[in-house]
Design a protein around this nucleic acid. Structure first.
Lengths: 194, 194
DNA sequence: GCTCAAGCGGACACTGGCGTCCACTTCCAC
DNA sequence: GTGGAAGTGGACGCCAGTGTCCGCTTGAGC
């Protein structure tokens, strides 16, 4: 059936909804995914009922917000096309995004996951699949890397970016990505132990 | 001053205290550091007041438990002596311990930290300092590695070991350590970008 | 065995977040 | 302007976790 032609919302209702989304975007970024829904409603200047009317739960609200972020990443992926370093560029972009909106990666990749977000998590994996394949083919990343390793890596980085200021988050996130990309061991020697 | 010669506790009181500690050890391992204190008291078969009488808060209880774990690690460090690979061995030991008692690393290394645990966190850093120095001198790890990078790495690994079964935790923890040690990029080539 | 302080644990009050309800307000078609 | 449906938000009840209080129980010294 065709999408049931939602009756036009009243203009004030539309505005309130937009303000809720904006407030949620800010607070997810500032406080993380666990921020109380009251706080979002208060920041938006609406009652809690208004928030709940528009979004039955935290997951629905998050889905709306993260969908935007994900579109952005998908656009970047498309722009990078078949470049061999597309995977690394995407990883950097995702980590940067995590710095600005530090709720998304943990919300999407950490267990347990809200049901509304499961589909978005699949989009992340799909986003990374082709670039990973090409990066491996081009010898840009180690051969045995699976898609789950990449998302695990992102979750690992996200876990240490809980600092309160954006600058501090950026510093830690960059260092964590650097450590993870290059490893703790020295480069350029083969280690045959293990 | 000498420790103020605590008046001998009644035998049943001593027993209850021990059962609280044992229950907390189990539940921290099973459920993580955030497990409700009620649950611990219930598992120990004592009332909540008994738990609070012995440990004013979660931090005090955790401090008692993690202190034991830390002693074990310090003993291992001492046994490893000045071996160049002592740092890597310790990292493996800490990750293994995190698999069994998966509350300790996040509780000690993640912010914000309960005040009782700050001293234990300093012990972790002290534990790693000398092995790190020697590992660098021996070329076992990259030159620019700081002590904070090592603890960051441990926190990163801990973040992805939230699975419910020990076996699943072990698998993920080992993979995460492996990724972090060797990096995502292929070995044996110099990468001059960045 | 008796005594009594140490120790116990159930009951209680408090807090913070969630989700719902409903009397009131506001927009908009007429 | 006005009627009435759409929309609002404060007030309310619920729940889970925390911390405390106090009348009862019990171990241990005599």
């Amino acid at each position: 059936m065709p999408p049931p032609r939602r009756a036009a919302r009243r203009r004030d209702a539309e505005e309130n909804r937009a303000r809720v989304v904006a407030a949620a975007r800010e607070l997810f970024a500032e406080e993380g995914f666990e921020v109380p829904l009251d706080a979002i409603a208060r920041r938006a200047g609406v009652g809690r009922a208004t928030l709940y009317r528009n979004f039955p739960d935290r997951g629905a609200l998050a889905a709306e917000i993260f969908d935007g972020n994900l579109r952005e990443l998908e656009a970047q992926a498309a722009a990078l096309g078949e470049r061999a370093d597309a995977l690394l560029e995407l990883l950097r972009a995702i980590v940067d995004m995590q710095v600005e909106a530090h709720a998304m990666v943990p919300a999407l990749l950490q267990e347990p996951r809200a049901p509304d977000l499961a589909a978005l998590e699949r989009r992340v994996r799909r986003l990374l699949a082709a670039p990973l394949r090409r990066a491996k083919a081009a010898g840009q990343v180690r051969e045995d890397l699976a898609i789950g390793d990449v998302t695990t890596g992102l979750a690992m980085i996200a876990a240490v970016t809980g600092d309160t200021t954006v600058a501090a988050r950026r510093r830690r996130a960059r260092r964590a990505l650097e450590l993870l990309l290059y490893g703790l061991l020295p480069r350029g020697e083969s280690d045959t132990s293990d």
